[in-house]
Amino acid sequence: MTDPSAPGLEVRRPMAAGRAIRRSAWTVTIVGLLGALLVVEKLVHPALNVFDMQSLVDGALPLCLAAMAQTAVVLSGGIDLSVGPMMSLVNVVSALLMTHATSGQAVLIALGVVAAVVAAGALTGAVIVATGVPDIIVTLATGFVWGGLALHVMPIPGGAAPAGFAALMTGQLGSVPSGLVVIVAALAFLWEPVHRSPAGLALYAVGSNRAAAYLSGVAVGRARVAAYALGGAFAALGGLALTASTTNGNAASGTSYTLTSVAATVLGGVSLVGGRGGMIGPVAAALLLTLINTLLTFEGVDPNFSLVVQGAIVVLVVMVAGLVLVRRRGA
């Protein structure tokens, strides 16, 4: 597999093999761990079939997309604490608009919602760039605004989504879960074009060293706004995935995704300082976290325990990473 964490570099000069392996080692480990856990699940639960795989992907889809939203922003050196509330808002707005829609109309509504959220993401980025207020404060505040709006739109759960639209994101396409198709499509048509373009290089450059990027002529502000807009696109898809999988709207549906998206991003090997990491790792990590939950549930562990596990995993991973960093610096 190609190294997702070094955009453009491989074009200019062949990277030393050792370095390439070291760079993508984390992603490979996570993907390997995911494979190993799938084998474990097959052993624990021998009747594992296509249907179970589909329910795993359906359950993981919102988190995968939330992780992609978070990753796009984190790579540019920011952090988005409004991912969860934004997904709630998309969930309630789309469920409200789709209540009496046909599947065709629902797709149009979905496209409109994505466009609106991209604009909202760009606005968040623009506010951060224009005001100079730290990302944490701005996205914490916008998160409360989105959450408040969601509650205002739908004080109690309601709304609906046409079955055709639900099947589009959580059904089956041939023998492949369509959730998997959505993830691959998001990677191939949303992330890869950006990743391979100068804009993608700018995104990594801004995240890695903002001052150096500025001095080399990168439009720093524009790159950061673009990162939040891209994050908005993924967050919108995540909210739509919630609508498709639950076929109703709930203002609290996205709340937990702020923490879990950060968890998947960190676990996926993306440096929280920015500029380092790829998109495959976080997606694999999101699947991994969901699979851990599924396994725990199979073992009869209370589902609420999963939040404890996820929080602990994030903290442990970041601690170990910090320790490695300190060691390497000391050596």
Partner: peptide
Amino acid sequence: IFRVQPLIMTLGMAGVLGGALTL
């Protein structure tokens, strides 16, 4: 000691506490 960013550390802690409380 472990140099974890405060945001991540405390967000993770909030997750752990929230889950434990639900239990």
